[in-house]
Design a binder for these strands. Structure first.
Lengths: 196, 196
DNA sequence: GCACGATACGGACCCGGGGTCCGCATTGCA
DNA sequence: TGCAATGCGGACCCCGGGTCCGTATCGTGC
């Protein structure tokens, strides 16, 4: 498996496509009105190129998403508190959720596209597995919630892209308010009385 | 607006389509491999008829969903405790969520279809508004959760069709266990220590 | 610098599914 | 029984994801 190095034009095209797609998704109302042909055209590339580079639509979106998410994942896996692994669980859980929420607020169309495209649900998206595993692990280091597995699922559900979109986009809930609400909710789930 | 009564064959066809679609959705792996043409064929009807009766795919699914949901809605709006309006909020919230969970467990493909089809998210589905308004109203009658609006969203997110599908279908979590987990989670959100 | 195999390009093409249209059949009222 | 009005059906259109292959580009050995 010699992992032969790709041709120069191939990588150039790849990055061009990534950039074009990023721009298109950022400027769109709904992710499904960014078509593959659009992306190809915007990148000055043929559809074939696009599909060869990313396999299919999901692959493209995943690549974009991963690129954007990378810094956060780094911070989570090896960064300083409150995201990094050295953080005590009771602070880390809300920090993780807040980071996820902010990420989705900052990348609404992309997150929406990923969660809406990957086979109809985000639960086979790979990312989800990682986040869920992570959260679950942290939750299990505190005694309170009996079942870390389900709790992790339920907490992650509270920051799903379309809910975020609904609140932030449709209803115009301001960012800080959403963060506060989520923090509140998380605190309540963790058992510590927050506001009262 | 005289509300002219429909012809007899029209209503016959409508019910035939409903029945056929119901059967098809019940017997399918994923809702997107039930095609409109399939439904029409199974009902012994032309596509035109189908679209005339229901407008579009979403309309069909909504009609099916509503039919299935009706008994529960009745029980919620005018039934006895623990679902009916006479129930004290602290018991009614978990009862509502449990009912919703059970409903989605019993109608997995349908729920999946509805939440996955309606414009890419369930949040403009109409049903959602109702459930959310209801839950929010009940939540606001208890002092604990500061923001009933967000709390309602977050709790409803925990019983989303694709999460239910993921857990019950993919991971084979048994029904009673899911109900218990959800009850636990709900209790924790409501501030009352449940298991410990 | 050249020639030639390997690699990538691109856009015409295919396919499948949602949705439409209109000539024809059924209905139901006088 | 006759005649609108209403509904039927399936051929048809559109559009988007995905494929294919003749052609252009790359890059390596000489």
């Amino acid at each position: 498996m010699p992992e032969r190095k790709p041709r120069k034009d191939a990588v150039r095209n790849r990055t061009a496509v990534l950039a074009a797609a990023d721009a298109l998704f950022a400027r769109c109302e709904s992710p499904e009105d960014v078509t593959m042909a659009d992306v190809a055209a915007a990148a000055g590339v043929g559809k074939g190129t696009l599909f060869r580079a990313f396999g299919d639509r999901t692959g493209l979106i995943r690549a974009l998403y991963e690129a954007r998410l990378e810094p956060i994942m780094d911070a989570v896996e090896a960064g300083p508190p409150p995201l990094g692994p050295a953080t005590p669980p009771l602070q880390r859980v809300p920090a993780l959720l807040d980071a996820l929420l902010c990420f989705k607020l900052d990348n609404r169309p992309l997150a929406l596209a990923l969660e809406g495209t990957a086979g109809g649900s985000p639960y086979q998206a790979g990312h989800y597995e990682r986040w869920h595993g992570l959260l679950r692990g942290v939750l299990e280091r505190i005694p309170e919630p009996a079942d870390g597995d389900f709790t992790a699922h339920a907490l992650l559900a509270a920051v799903r892209a379309d809910l975020v979109e609904h609140l932030a986009g449709r209803e115009g809930v301001p960012r800080e308010r959403m963060r506060a609400r989520l923090a509140d909710f998380t605190a309540r789930v963790l058992g510590s009385p927050a506001t009262d």
